[in-house]
Amino acid sequence: MTKEDTQQVVLDIIADVAPDEDLSNVKPDVRLRDQLELDSMDFLDIVMELRKRHNIEVPEAEYTELASLDSCSTYLMPKFEALGK
């Protein structure tokens, strides 16, 4: 899975978690919470959806790895790769 594919996975989840947000111009290097209206419960939703949709576990100590789209892809790409995706 490419960096872009991985970021799209996260954006698809955010589209469901925060359906009022405009995701057309999300800057990959800026913290998601600095450009979108996302709270801590929303991040738990993102973690839950990664678990449900992609069988990926994000331990609580590593939640900060989901701060931006860039950090998400850096963190998640190896996990997708380990799953053969």
């Binding site: 469901d16 978690v17 925060a18 359906p19 009022d20 209206e37 419960m41």
Partner: peptide, 8 residues
Amino acid sequence: QKRKEVRV
């Protein structure tokens, strides 16, 4: 309500 409020 916002859509997110309906969802949550």
